[in-house]
Amino acid sequence: MSGGLSLSVANTLAGLMVLASFLMIYQDRLSALINVLAAHAFVLALAVAWQAHVQDAPELYVTAAITLGFKAMALPMALRRIIVRLGLHREIEAVTGVGLTVLAGIGLVALSLDVMLPVTAHADPLTREDVTLALSVVLLGLLMMVTRRNAVSQVAAFLSLENGIDLAAAAAQGMPMVVEISVAFSLLVAFLVIGIFLFRIRERFDSVDVRALDAFRGERR
């Protein structure tokens, strides 16, 4: 197959992930957010699969499958269940206006292009585009984490951040299998812990609003 096609497909998929990230920033309803998160992971799975195809690295298919299974299906499902169980159907309170956040997000994308493109000048163009966009996804995820107050949406934001990293890992050609497994594994554990914590938090505070947590800072003034 031609290098041009593989490049443009990979590029499109990575671009879609960035778009999904923006959509996540834009969403202000929790359930919708989780839907977008699922889409985000789905695109990631596609991107990883495409990389497996392009790089002729069969182990990446496994990663893609894990991503599809866990991140695109299991995780969103679990999160939805949490929302239902906790009764979180109200709107997300973002700290700043969506418009401003989207603007900042665009700035971040520009920054990541500015940082990554020159330094990857010698790398394979396939890798180059993906890693650059992956950085955008990571930064957008971080941005989302700091603009959301709700613990569930923060976790969702964190997961999108992880997706970005996965994208980068998949794009890094020939990166050993070890890493994918470890990534999946640790994310699994991470989710479990999050789940546990969310439940504990539910037990204790009747809410997953991080602000409620903050009332119990150890050293009150």
């Binding site: 700290v95 971040l108 920054l111 990541s112 500015d114 940082v115 020159p118 330094v119 930064l139 971080l142 941005l143 984490m145 700091v146 959301r148 107050r149 923060q154 991080v210 602000r211 947590l213 903050d214 800072r217 050293e219 009150r220 003034r221």
Partner: peptide, 28 residues
């Protein structure tokens, strides 16, 4: 700074990251 919310602490990390990346971009 001892009594910020987690979100604000995250913001500090985020700002540090963006600032360093910006510096790097400018320096290059």
């Amino acid at each position: 700074l001892q009594f910020l919310t987690i979100r604000r602490y995250l913001a500090a990390v985020f700002i540090a990251l963006v600032a360093l990346l910006l510096a790097l971009a400018l320096w290059q």
